[in-house]
Design a protein around this nucleic acid. Sequence first.
DNA 1: TGACTTCTTGAACGCTCTGTCAAGAAGTTG
DNA 2: CAACTTCTTGACAGAGCGTTCAAGAAGTCA
Lengths: 199, 199
Amino acid sequence: MARTGRPREFDKDKTLARAVELFWSRGYGATSVQDLVDALAVERGSLYGTFGDKRRFYLDAVRLYWDVYERHLVTALDTTPLLPALREILTHPARLDELISDVGAPHGCMVGNTTAELVPHDAEATEVVTRSYRRFTDLVADALRRAQSTGEVTDNAPPEAQAQLLLYLVQGLSLVSRAGLDRAAALSAIDTAIDALRA
Amino acid sequence: MARTGRPREFDKDKTLARAVELFWSRGYGATSVQDLVDALAVERGSLYGTFGDKRRFYLDAVRLYWDVYERHLVTALDTTPLLPALREILTHPARLDELISDVGAPHGCMVGNTTAELVPHDAEATEVVTRSYRRFTDLVADALRRAQSTGEVTDNAPPEAQAQLLLYLVQGLSLVSRAGLDRAAALSAIDTAIDALRA
DNA sequence: TGACTTCTTGAACGCTCTGTCAAGAAGTTG
DNA sequence: CAACTTCTTGACAGAGCGTTCAAGAAGTCA
């Protein structure tokens, strides 16, 4: 049974990564298939043949976005002391350097954007988003638990609550930043939050 | 100069208020004019004649949403002690009772949703959103300043920074809640934040 | 009543959208 | 080379979109 045929002319992974940028900056509804065809230099038929329909394509893009983000998160959280790393995580809500091609307005967090646009009426999107949030709080709570035991972070609140708070904070910051970032005000708010975590 | 003519058969204000609900739950792009015609029981032509095009209609709805929210906010902030009021503001990010018809999934904050969908590429939406955020931080900072002077709230951070933090928090909470609210986790995170403000 | 103004109705227009498909191109395999 | 498989291309269909508009209805005013 022959499994060969004409080879694909574009790189599937790279194309998905570029689709992340597009979907990330414009959202699901405002990105048309024609936009994708133009930006990715791949014809409609090939796009449909490779990635399925637009919704599936988008959800795959979100999953890739999150995977990249999670790798950065894990790396950042595995440092001592922890608080500077948390500050970094909060300070750059749009710092996925691997996916950012060049400068431009911040697009916020793609998971957050997906939440606003597709959740809760799209069940699959809701699942992706929920799992991402859960991963974030689990990873951050683990790190905070360790930091509480070393005495770096205050233990007057459970690490799970602190992690949940940081999720709200980073999502809020990432969203509000779309409307224009007052760097000084944002930094001063972040420092206030980080200080509150200090033992 | 006669200014009369056939009187409008529907209540403009009530119709706008009902449009808020629709736009709020589905967003701008996912709410079609036909959806509005069906839900509001007003024909297309009348809608266009009264509210202008869809975008103008939506922006008016956002402005109404915010006006109602701000009234609630001002009332809540004008209480002593302040911290329980702040807790209330954070606890119910979707508590605009006047506009909520009945139960249903939370839609988050309509200003936040607008930010995710239309900002920054829509200049007018960006202006509405920016002004709303600014009003929120101004009002909350004023209240915090008073509460700092009475000794209720800690003064180890400027009230502006605390207010900015609360904006991020309420927006993050409101957004993440769309994906399903774990009430216990959310409340514990909010209490952690409120405790951090206590003097 | 007749002139005037505004609102209502729903058909229709032009456009864009997602998704499909047939024909051809480009490989592999025997 | 011939058979087979997969990918590419771009036209196409079908649906839905926002918006306009002409004709009629319902008021006011002189």
